[in-house]
Amino acid sequence: MAPELISSLSLWQEPFMQRALIGGVISGILGGWVGSIAVLRQLSFFAEALGQASLLGISLALLVGLSPPVLLWPFALGFAWLLRELLKRSSLSADALLSLMCSGALALSVVLLSSLPGARLSLQQLLFGDILGIAWADLLPLTLLLVVTLAYGVTSRRAQILISVDPVLARSRGVAVETHRLILLGLLALVVAASIKAVGVLLISGFVVIPACVARLLSRSFNVYVLLAAAIGALSAVVGLFGSAVFNQPSGPMVVLVQALLFVVALLAGRWVGQTTTAASVDRAR
C-alpha cells in the first residue's frame, strides 16, 4: 500500500493529474451549487434524466462525425427545454414522464452506439467517467460556466430562496419565477453536460444531488447550506481523484463513493447535533 501511495503522490506532479484536479474541483463546485437548489425544487430526477440523455447527445455527435463536447452542451440545453415543455403540457405525472424520457433516451443511445461502425469511445469511460482525460481546452468552458453560475447564484440568491419557499409568495414580491426556473434548468443541463467527463452518465445525478443532501443534514441556514454543498462537491472530487489514482479505479465511482461516505458521516453527525441541540433547548427552557 505504501509504495502505491508514494507513487500516487508523485503523480500529482504530472500535468494530466493537475488538469484532472482543477477540472474535478470546478465540476464539484458547480455540481454542489446547482444541486443545492435543484434538491430544494425537487429536481433530482430531472438531473438523472439529463445525465442519461447526455449519452444520446454523445451518440448523435459520433453519428454525424462531430466531437462529442461540441454537440453535448447545446443538446443538453435542448433536452432540458423539451422536458420542461412536456412536463408543462402533459397530463402524466412528472416522475412517470421523466422515467419514460430517461429510458427512451438511454435505449436509443445504446442502439446508436452499437450501430456505429467501429466504436470510437469506450462505453466504460462514458458510463463511469474519465477525469484523467480532461484537456486544458476542456477547462476553459468549465471555468466560464463556473463564473457565470456563481455570478447568477449571488445575484439571484433572494429569488432562489423565495421560489423554493413558495412560488406564489415569490411572484407577489416581484420575482420573475418562470425566468429563474428556466435559467436554473439551463444551468443544471450545462453542469450535467460539463461534468459527464468527470463522473460519467450513470453517476451524474448522484454527483449533483448527494453534496446537497449532505449539506442539508448539517445546515441551519441557507448560506451555510449552499456553501457547504459546493465545498463538499469540490472536496469529494479531490479525494475521489486521489482514490482513483491509488486504487486504479475509474474516477466517477470513486468521487460518488466519497460523497456517499460523507452522507453517512453527516447522517450520524446530524443525529448527534440534533440530540445535543434538543438537550440544550430543554436546558434553556428550564
Binding site: L169, R173, L217
Partner: peptide, 30 residues
C-alpha cells in the same frame, strides 16, 4: 415597483418541505 413595496400578500399555505435549510431571521430578512 412603488406599489408592490407597500403591499404584502400571503398565500393560503406555504409549500415548505421537511428540513428546508432556512432560519427564521434569514426568511424575515427577505
Amino acid at each position: 415597483r412603488e406599489v408592490r413595496d407597500q403591499v404584502a400578500y400571503l398565500p393560503q399555505k406555504l409549500l415548505l418541505d421537511g428540513r428546508f435549510p432556512l432560519s427564521v431571521s434569514e426568511f424575515v430578512r427577505l
